[in-house]
């Protein structure tokens, strides 16, 4: 099985872009040969999908990458190091890069993973998305779906 996960906080505006991409894919019926899952902020649940039956994983998340708002970048977990100011993992904090590290260090089978990081315009307490990001939902969805196959090919 291939999985496409959306990560973020639904009520924090552009931080919700990963979840909105998953919603868009589900609404458009684009999830034909993979599962699109809203992981929200409970990133540690990603570990439930780290097994030999998982062919590939794509994680869509908002990311501070120094790009223009709305632009995206594709990268593997090995290409980045978390600089998030969190203690690691708690019932609420979820640094997904650290969670992948935790999985590696505790002997989990790690499938091929790619991130699709989207530069946010605004992160604040509000439902919705910036127009720039909302207008690009189809672009992000296509890029993420294409990536599932690429990720499978490593």
């Amino acid at each position: 099985m291939k999985y496409l996960f959306g990560v973020g906080n639904y009520s924090m505006f552009d931080d919700s872009i990963g979840i909105k991409v998953v919603e868009y894919i589900s609404e458009q019926g684009l999830d034909k040969n993979f599962q699109a899952i809203d992981l929200s902020g409970n990133a540690i649940n990603l570990l439930a999908y780290f097994n030999e039956e998982t062919e590939s994983i794509v994680i869509v998340d908002s990311a501070n990458l120094g790009l223009n708002p709305g632009e995206y970048k594709i990268f593997a977990p090995s290409q980045v190091e978390s600089v998030k100011e969190l203690a690691g993992i708690s019932t609420h904090e979820g640094d997904i890069v650290k969670i992948i590290t935790l999985a590696k260090e505790t002997g989990y089978t790690i499938p091929p993973i790619k991130f699709l990081g989207i530069e946010p315009l605004l992160i604040q307490n509000e439902f919705g998305l910036s127009k720039k990001l909302e207008d690009n939902l189809n672009v992000y969805a296509k890029a993420a779906i294409d990536l599932l196959d690429l990720a499978n090919l490593k």
Binding site: A87, G88, I89, K98, T101, L102
Partner: peptide
Amino acid sequence: APSVFPLI
């Protein structure tokens, strides 16, 4: 420990 990571 400061977090779970040093416990691994």
